[in-house]
Design a protein around this nucleic acid. Sequence first.
DNA 1: TGTACATCAGTGAACGCGCGTTCACTGATGTAC
DNA 2: TGTACATCAGTGAACGCGCGTTCACTGATGTAC
Lengths: 215, 215
Amino acid sequence: MTGQVRTVDGRVAGRRGQATRQKLLDCLSEMLSSSPYRDVKVIDVARKAGTSPATFYQYFPDVEGAVLEIAEQMAADGAGLTDVLANRSWVGKSGWQAAQDLVDGFLDFWRRNEAILRVVDLGAAEGDKRFYKIRMKILNSVTNSLTDTVKELQSKGKVDKEVSAAAMAGSLVAMLAAVASHQKGFQTWGVKQAELKPNLALLVHLGITGRKPTK
Amino acid sequence: MTGQVRTVDGRVAGRRGQATRQKLLDCLSEMLSSSPYRDVKVIDVARKAGTSPATFYQYFPDVEGAVLEIAEQMAADGAGLTDVLANRSWVGKSGWQAAQDLVDGFLDFWRRNEAILRVVDLGAAEGDKRFYKIRMKILNSVTNSLTDTVKELQSKGKVDKEVSAAAMAGSLVAMLAAVASHQKGFQTWGVKQAELKPNLALLVHLGITGRKPTK
DNA sequence: TGTACATCAGTGAACGCGCGTTCACTGATGTAC
DNA sequence: TGTACATCAGTGAACGCGCGTTCACTGATGTAC
């Protein structure tokens, strides 16, 4: 997928160069969790990586360029979010399990990639097309999968025809993403993870199947 | 509530001054809908208002200060979001109506204040306490109201005791806020408002009452 | 194994832009008599 | 009604900081013979 790593001026990077490049990405990732995106300066990233700003520019056009690369890696990883939904039955007990697994996977993924996801959300909200695409890539896979599930249940007569599968799936995914990115907010607010997860799973199940889960 | 309007150096502003101040706020508001928050410069706001940057600093410490004032006005307005829920029954047909009204009110409010809400979300996401508080002020009123509703239904035995009222209300409100701020996204994606609203109302109703609405 | 040369990798220091912010000043409005 | 003075309101122009970015250079690593 990723071809040869090249410096900005076109040279092919060797071992040493790639290591430096990677170190810059790692340091940037780390900094994103501790300070707001806008406050991250090239100089700070470079210094943290034990190198100089000029070196940074050998590998990235600017901070945003480096951030996008981190984000794309994360998005590729996020494609796996739907694995848990493949060939699952949403009828009976296994439906409840599917809902729980989806919620678990979603919240975990979000927590693992909290910092970069916040930046992606920010960029997307500000109207940056590239961040918007990355965000879509992650959410679409889940949304599409859920849309298909609803449509299938509808064709079997298990869900009202009048429900818009796409609207339902989209709303649920938007909810998961919103709650996931405010997990801390919920906690501060007195809602424990242990309450949050089953509640989200309940809503997902209600939304997808139209009925309460069989536990 | 708002006391006398004063300039930064402590003088009381007269009619003319207040008008200028308001014009600056209006222009800023307008600019927020067309360009990303971070790209709004004092100079541009001032020029758009037909005045000079030095004047801007007579009334506001910086752009953020002015933005916060716009946001606080909006938040005060948003307190009315719960009016629609006061003394409503969630049983039977009126429950379905309540869910619809809530969704309508929410989406409309969000659309009316799209630009400033995006900035508030952004600031809050970046960890700015003041924006976070404003966001909370708006969402809390709705969340609290819904939490009370669920608890009431629980005490009447109409909703399972095991449901966490706070988690449920919080999740639903997070969903509404998320969907509202991505309304355009849904449209681009092929989901029409006409499908979105009933779907959200359905989810709200399912979440609050645990059962399908009687239409 | 040693030497010479090519290429890779990294950098200190400075340049310069953009913008936030302020200063010293001018003009407008209000008020007292 | 007119004049003088106080205060309100607004501003052009410049200062200066912070930072992104680059240049000309040094050092490290690899390779050919």
